[in-house]
Simulated assay, not measured.
Amino acid sequence: MLAGAHAPRFTRPSAPELVGRSPAITRVQELVRRAAALDGGVLLTAEPGTAVDSVARDLHARSRHSTAPYVIVECAAGDAARLDRVLFGVTAEEAPTDLESVSSDSRIAAARGGILFLQDVTELPAGPQARLARIARDGEVRIDHTPVPTAFRLVASASPGIDGDVHAHRFRADLYRRLSAVRIDVPPLRERAEDVPALAVRLVEDICATRGIGVRTFTQAAQALLAALTWPGNLAELHDVLDRVVTETREDVIHVEHVLPALQLHRAPAPFVPVGNLREARLRFERDYIAAVLQHHDWRMAAAAQTLGIQRPNLYRKARQLGIPLARTSE
């Protein structure tokens, strides 16, 4: 289905989550570009902390329905009765049964002609799942007793474990098929570490613009430090750290020493037990940081030396002094 779709070239993403040039995110960019030219369901799978809503909005902005409504339903918010009211509204008990009936103040009615984005769709209770599956199958619905085409596109997000939910019958297989005409698996940050510097730049630009302050830039060393981390909380965690850095830094350039306190605050602190004197503590930090930069550059000494701002022979000497094992590659 995707192979024959025609769509314009992928331009600068409005979604920070799509920033980058790694093979993992380039594939996602291409799938979003192609999916925007189609009208079927789209399923976005991602780990917690991924900005899936921004990806769905980017897809909507690239589609031919970009001026139509974009309606979001947070399926994990509220109980079954509330979700039923939000999605379908309040309908009369004597409504005809040939089609699903919704009221004009429902999210289903509001999404006509545009996109209905179901965030965390596997959190939907069984009743709303069944009603949505029927609406998706019929392509029609009664709004205040009047039959009309639904004319909206279903886009949903879920954790990568949705397949297990389908197999265990916790999520309806027919609704899954409707949603996953196009499936886009958004990778976690740990699988696209090379994108973290560009993501950090974009996030800081957005944070500074929101606050009405001048844009901050990064040193290469600060970017390398960010890229060396695994970010289990994904983009949300990275955003929180950078928001704290911008809050607490008055300089125009963000250095490593500005990032480290934000990282320590963001993670649950371990009990502090002083070990050694100040010189020994500095040596431990220097060793850990140089090792992280080397790992980030796949142990390419020239690239690591450039990031660290030292000559390559000095990096070899530092590594030997600090006991950092070197995996040399031909350069």
Rank of each mutant, 00 (worst) to 15 (best):
M1H: 15
L2G: 14
H6S: 12
P8M: 10
R9P: 01
F10R: 07
A15Q: 03
E17W: 00
L18S: 12
L18D: 11
R34A: 12
A36P: 05
V42E: 14
L44N: 00
L44R: 01
T45E: 12
A46H: 08
G49H: 05
G49T: 08
A51R: 14
V52D: 06
D58P: 05
R64S: 08
I72L: 13
C75Y: 04
D79K: 02
R82G: 01
L87R: 10
A92W: 01
P96G: 03
E100F: 01
V102W: 04
S103R: 06
R107H: 09
G113A: 07
G114I: 00
I115M: 13
L116A: 02
T122E: 11
L124N: 06
A130R: 04
R131D: 00
R131H: 07
V141D: 02
R142T: 08
V148S: 06
P149R: 12
T150I: 11
A156E: 10
I162C: 04
D163W: 02
D163Y: 01
D165A: 10
D174N: 07
A181M: 09
A181E: 13
R183Y: 00
P187C: 09
L189F: 05
E191A: 11
A198M: 09
V204T: 12
E205L: 10
I207P: 11
I207M: 09
C208F: 12
A209W: 04
G212C: 08
I213H: 06
R216V: 05
T217F: 06
Q220F: 12
L225F: 13
T230C: 09
L235C: 04
R244S: 07
V245T: 11
T247R: 14
T247S: 12
V253F: 01
P261C: 02
A262Q: 09
L263G: 01
Q264D: 11
A268P: 12
F272K: 13
P274F: 11
R279C: 02
R282C: 13
R284K: 14
F285Q: 14
R287P: 02
A292L: 12
Q295D: 14
W299V: 07
A304D: 15
A305C: 13
L308D: 13
Q311L: 12
Q311Y: 11
E331I: 14
